[in-house]
């Protein structure tokens, strides 16, 4: 058996804003059905990588290749706008919450199933006349949405406006919404930001269950190291737009370059600190 191709292969990704080189020749891969964490100090270019993957920015150079389970291959650097979600099946969340605050929790999850429903509604025509096939699809969409609400423990608040939910619930709802788009790759930008210890632990469980039970590959940006170390299969460390380490959580944590980048010291000092601490 051959090893399956990685879900996402980034090769030589470069992003330039005027004279600023935000990402310089970044290459890494995210493996299928694994959680790959992208970490680094503030301003390292993590979110820029996400913005390139999800089509917000057109990269100045490099390629991003996404391969589905069935072998279908997409060049993310050539897709734009809603097509990234529709065809390549990449979903993402943001650092700041971007739910549709005026819509109910359930409706938020329904919007994410737009593509499925669009196909079932025969591009609005069948839906308009209430064709049975469309009704069935709509029911399935509601079932999926409710299943996710159940999973994140918000079933009893399905009809509340998303904007009125507590902060932690909104975070989880956002992940559930991304999952309702049935992505091949889920990109999460700091999902644990602002969560307390209990909520972080619940988040870790949710992400692990997404990986293990549903089999979705996850690309994660996170500052909360307890979450990162606990759930990641693989960590990529960025600093000033350059990859400085890439490997299993333990190896990355013990890498002097990584510690130096986080502490803002040079490598020898960092090594000394680690020696002393060990």
């Amino acid at each position: 058996m051959t090893t399956p191709a990685p879900i996402l292969a980034i090769d030589g990704l470069t992003m330039r804003f005027g004279g600023i080189l935000a990402i310089n020749e970044l290459s890494f891969t995210a493996q299928r059905r694994q959680i790959t964490a992208l970490i680094g100090p503030n301003g390292a270019g993590k979110t820029t990588v996400f913005n390139c993957i999800t089509g917000f920015y057109r990269p100045s150079g490099g390629t991003m290749t996404l391969v589905h389970d069935d072998g279908a291959t997409f060049r993310l650097d050539r897709l734009h706008d809603f097509r990234i979600c529709k065809y390549a099946k990449v979903a993402r969340t943001f650092q700041n919450i971007r739910l549709f605050p005026g819509m109910t929790a359930l409706e938020n999850l329904m919007v994410a199933q737009h593509n499925t429903l669009m196909r079932a509604s025969g591009f609005s025509l069948l839906g308009l006349f209430g064709a049975p096939s469309f009704r069935a699809a709509e029911r399935q969409a509601i079932d999926l949405a409710r299943e996710w609400l159940q999973r994140i423990g918000l079933l009893d608040r399905a009809d509340d406006a998303a904007g009125n939910l507590p902060y932690g619930d909104q975070r989880r709802l956002e992940i559930a919404r991304a999952m309702c788009a049935q992505p091949a790759l889920l990109c999460l930008d700091e999902p644990a930001a602002g969560l307390n210890a209990n909520e972080s632990a619940a988040l870790s469980d949710l992400l692990l269950s997404i990986r293990d039970d549903i089999g979705t590959s996850i690309l994660l940006i996170e500052h909360d190291m307890s979450v990162v170390m606990e759930i990641s299969d693989h960590i990529v460390v960025l600093d000033h737009g350059v990859k400085i380490a890439d490997g299993a959580p333990r190896a990355v944590r013990d890498n002097p370059k990584v510690v130096a980048a986080y502490l803002g010291a040079d490598e020898e000092d960092a090594a000394a600190v680690m020696e002393g601490g060990a």
Binding site: F82, C85, V111, G127
Partner: peptide, 25 residues
């Protein structure tokens, strides 16, 4: 009540996010 209505309200609130969820804005 309809899919189109939901899409419309979603675009009204956050076009970028709607596009990221596959809605053709």
């Amino acid at each position: 009540r309809t899919r189109f209505g939901r899409d419309m309200r979603a675009c009204e609130q956050d076009q970028t996010m709607a596009a990221l969820l596959g809605v053709d804005v």
